[in-house]
C-alpha cells in the first residue's frame, strides 16, 4: 500500500494543489476536487487561460505517489466548490 492511500478522507476536505505521479512515468498536476473512496481515483481540476476548466481523473490503480504542493485559499475554495455543485446550489455573483 502506498503512503497516500493511508490518508484519511478528512484530509481531502480542504482543497489542495497536488502533483500525482502515476505508473509509466505519467505526471499530473492540479487542484484535487475529490478522491473517490471506492476506486481511489483522484479528480484534478486545472484552470485554463480561456476560463475553461480541464478535469483529469487519474485512476486509483495507476497512482503511485501524491505530493501536496500547496493549500487552497478562500477564493480558490469558492471556485473549486462550485465546479460539480448541483445546479440549484450554485453560488451566483451579485
Amino acid at each position: 500500500m502506498n503512503d497516500w492511500q493511508k490518508k484519511s478522507p478528512l484530509e481531502w476536505k480542504t482543497y489542495k494543489m497536488v502533483k500525482v505521479a502515476a505508473v509509466e512515468k505519467h505526471e499530473y498536476e492540479g487542484w484535487v476536487l475529490t478522491v473517490d473512496p471506492v476506486s481511489a481515483s483522484i479528480v484534478l481540476a486545472t484552470f485554463l487561460e480561456n476560463e475553461k476548466v480541464s478535469i483529469s481523473v487519474v485512476l486509483g490503480h495507476a497512482v503511485q505517489e501524491v505530493e501536496i504542493l500547496r493549500e487552497g485559499d478562500d477564493e480558490m475554495k469558492q471556485r473549486l466548490s462550485c465546479i460539480f455543485a448541483p445546479e440549484e446550489s450554485k453560488a451566483y455573483s451579485p
Binding site: 478522491v35 473517490d36 481523473v57
Partner: peptide, 13 residues
C-alpha cells in the same frame, strides 16, 4: 461523512 461527500463529488464528476 467526509467519505460520502467525496464519493458524491466523484459521481457528479
Amino acid at each position: 461523512e467526509a467519505r460520502a461527500a467525496l464519493r458524491q463529488r466523484y459521481l457528479r464528476g
